[in-house]
């Protein structure tokens, strides 16, 4: 944060320090006031009363939430594996030497990137039964996640392969490798390594998108939260449950993001070959 942005202002002198201090105090007051207002409203409407937090002690509710979490993770895991496979296949298709393969793959990838994920899920869950195919919510969620994120991943893979310096593939061809060998042994390993952080961030997106399953009533975390939150017996603890669920999502995403950051640092540690001109800068 310091190096690129500190260039925007001088080292503060006594006057600027006083001004920045004052602005800092104002900022703290504004943020604190906003938070305080929300907390006051939460207290005033009884969201912090013991009764609406009681559910957290019940074992079957803990199990229900855990099951929701597992369903979320299940959709994420299956969706991630399938999306990676889909992405790999269509990235290769877009890089193919045959124009019709390239055209077809481009059309598929561009279509699924343009259609909203929610509409894809609706098509599979609400649309398919009208042609006689009944699809479970899990399948609808996973297929939609695969098609959308797979298309985005295909673009990521493709740009990764294209970013590998030309000399690499030329050298491989000069050694007598065939097209598939060049791809498998030379281009893909380098592309995957350079794109790994981007791939993981796309997986974070996939995890977040799995929450859209809520809209077609896939029993994932958010759905369980809705069911729990509207239960009259427990005093309709909608907000308390939502807070807990939000915490779970944020933790999961931060863990994945931390993984992305770790991978990025690790790839950066490996110095690029000295002969390669860095085009990124």
């Amino acid at each position: 944060m310091s190096a690129p942005t500190a260039v925007l202002y001088d080292v503060p002198g006594p006057k600027a320090r006083a001004r920045n201090g004052a602005l800092g105090v104002v900022a703290v007051i504004v943020v604190a006031a906003l938070l305080a207002f929300v907390v006051v409203r939460l207290i005033a409407t009884g969201q912090f009363e013991g009764r609406v937090w009681e559910w957290i002690l019940y074992e079957n509710i803990q199990l229900a939430l855990l099951e929701g979490l597992l369903n979320t993770l299940r959709a994420f895991a299956v969706g991630a594996v399938l999306a990676l496979a889909f992405g790999a296949v269509f990235a290769l298709g877009r890089l193919s030497d045959h124009a019709w393969v390239r055209g077809l793959s481009t059309a598929v990838v561009e279509f699924f990137r343009a259609v909203p994920l929610v509409v894809l899920m609706f098509i599979f869950y609400f649309g398919m039964p009208s042609v006689g195919v009944t699809v479970s919510t899990f399948t609808a969620v996973v297929v939609a996640l695969t098609l959308y994120n797979g298309s985005v991943l295909a673009e990521i893979f493709r740009s990764g392969v294209q970013a590998v310096p030309r000399g690499q593939s030329e050298a491989a061809y000069a050694l007598g490798m065939r097209k598939s060998a060049v791809m498998r042994f030379v281009l893909l390993p380098q592309a995957v390594r350079s794109m790994l952080p981007t791939i993981v961030s796309q997986l974070v997106v996939l995890l977040k998108d799995s929450a859209l399953g809520f809209l077609i009533l896939y029993p994932e975390l958010l759905y369980q939260a809705r069911v729990l939150g509207s239960s009259g017996q427990l005093g309709r603890p909608l907000l308390p449950v939502a807070f807990v669920v939000a915490l779970a999502y944020i933790t999961l995403c931060l863990l994945l993001t931390a993984l992305a950051g770790y991978l990025e640092r690790r790839t950066r540690r490996v110095a690029p070959a000295p002969a390669v001109v860095d085009e990124g800068a």
Binding site: Q47, A211, L222, L238, L239, A246, Y249, I250, T257
Partner: peptide, 25 residues
């Protein structure tokens, strides 16, 4: 930014569509 980027949009909607009316603001 950290908070919002790591929250699913559906959850943000959930808070505003179902939670916000409960606060009676």
């Amino acid at each position: 930014v950290t908070l919002l980027r790591n929250t699913p949009l559906t959850l943000v909607f959930f808070f505003f569509a179902f939670g916000f009316p409960l606060l009676e603001i």
